[in-house]
Computed example of a mutant assay.
Amino acid sequence: MSCSRRNFLAGSGAVIFTTGVATTSVLTSTNSDASADNTEAAKRYGMLHDENACIGCTACTEACREVNKVPEGVSRLEINRSEPMGEYPDVEYRFTRTSCQHCENPPCVYVCPTGAAYKDEETGIVDVHKEKCVGCGYCLAACPYQVRFFHPEDHSADKCNFCRDTNLAAGKQPACVESCPTKALVFGDLNDPQSTISKAITVNAVYRDKVHLGTKPKLYKVPFHKGEV
């Protein structure tokens, strides 16, 4: 059943879904706004990455892979290293995190023709109903951060979901946060002004990627301030 649907999407049927996407976008956006107004107590999980504290050890990526059983060849998060700044022996590197932004206004959700991509209104986490995914690739193409991939084993769309099914379900912090030796990652409820992440965003200068697109990402970053300005 799923194979035939995937083949259908790969062929001429994709044109039909393209027409339906515009309607889905409007309705989903409207419903999300209405839901947000009626669920003031809902959580809104976000993450902060401190580029000054990050040492590029990649303990976070390895912990994510182990806890969430992510196969080799794909990754839910990456730590990217800049070109060297300064002259030897005073050389500095900037390390930036690339992963799902858990957007308030997620393009991946709006273009999904089956409802596989969705935003959980109780937590703000953007996730995937794997059993509904037909592998059309619309969400991969729509994501402006290019952080989605096809899982090589179950062939459904995959990405960071803040360890929702693993650590978070067990009452723990996401694996990347727990494993970071320098405490460069902070996770919590952005709706709670007393949460660690809310306080960290208040006391630090922060930025978010591609905010001009209106996606309202919930991955905040403390900019690297070493080296030349």
Rank of each mutant, 00 (worst) to 15 (best):
E153Y: 06
S179H: 03
D154I: 15
V203F: 00
H155S: 05
T182R: 13
V206I: 14
C160Q: 03
G171Y: 04
A184C: 08
P181C: 13
G171I: 01
A157K: 02
E178G: 09
A170I: 08
V177H: 07
S195K: 08
N204C: 07
A169Y: 07
T196W: 00
H155G: 04
L168W: 13
Q173R: 12
D192R: 09
H151W: 06
Y207I: 12
L168G: 03
G188E: 03
A175Y: 02
L168M: 13
F162G: 11
D165S: 10
E153T: 13
F149R: 04
P152V: 05
P152K: 05
P181I: 02
K183H: 14
C180R: 07
N167T: 13
P193S: 10
N161F: 12
V186Q: 10
Q173W: 01
K159R: 10
C160K: 02
D165K: 12
V203E: 15
N204F: 03
D158F: 12
D154S: 07
P181F: 06
E153N: 14
S195G: 07
R164F: 14
C163T: 08
L168Q: 10
K199C: 02
T202N: 00
R164M: 12
A200F: 01
Q194S: 14
A170T: 06
P193W: 13
